[in-house]
């Protein structure tokens, strides 16, 4: 039985396309792994209870709150962080560009949740309604904008993404 217990855990994560093999302590959250072990600080800590969404990443194509995700449970996951939205040549993705152009953010601390959720929304819905945007962003708090500019930015992102696809 004891041989089933590991003191540290070996995880293989592909983060923004790059493979990382890491030996981590069992208790580590994905958020801490990204920030502390990989020095990827684009993903933010806001509450550590899963309420604010500032720590959002995508795991195997689905958004998740990295502060309440135990890294050890992700043995072979593909992770995309906010840094991974930028294209390899440094070009901003249509979503990033739209949020910047439309003053979607003020302080930008909530950006990981807003952008990653928008990306997932637009994958399956190229023309989201107000209420679909509200559902998609419901897991994220923004304290600066009053959400008006965020809604506008999601709609602009949808248009930009369509333009790019066509």
């Amino acid at each position: 039985m004891e041989d089933m217990l590991e003191d540290t855990v070996l995880v293989n994560l592909r983060v923004n396309g790059k493979l990382h093999e890491l030996e981590i302590p069992a208790h580590k959250s994905l958020l801490d792994l990204l920030r502390e072990d990989l020095n990827m600080t684009g993903t933010h800590m806001g509450c550590m209870t899963g309420h604010c969404g500032a720590c959002t990443v995508s795991i195997d194509g689905r958004v998740a709150k990295s502060c309440i995700t135990l890294a050890a449970t992700l043995s072979r996951a593909k992770i995309t962080t906010i840094e991974g939205l930028t294209e390899e040549d440094g070009t901003l993705s249509p979503i990033q560009q739209a949020f910047w152009d439309e003053a979607g953010f003020q302080c930008g601390y909530c950006a990981p949740g807003m952008l990653m959720c928008t990306a997932e929304l637009l994958e399956s819905n190229s023309d989201p309604s107000d209420s679909e945007i509200e559902t998609a962003l419901a897991g994220n708090l923004c304290r600066c904008t009053g959400y008006q500019s965020l809604k506008r930015a999601v709609k602009a992102a949808a248009v930009k993404a369509k333009e790019k696809a066509s």
Binding site: L5, A26, H27, S29, M48, T49, G50, K65, C67, I68, T69, L70, A72, T73
Partner: peptide, 22 residues
């Protein structure tokens, strides 16, 4: 399992499991 219930308590030190069974 998903950790959504357990992790907030872990993060605040309210729970410090000796073994995580994934």
């Amino acid at each position: 399992a998903g950790g959504q219930e357990l992790m907030p308590s872990v993060n605040y030190g309210a729970l410090m499991p000796e073994v995580y069974i994934d």
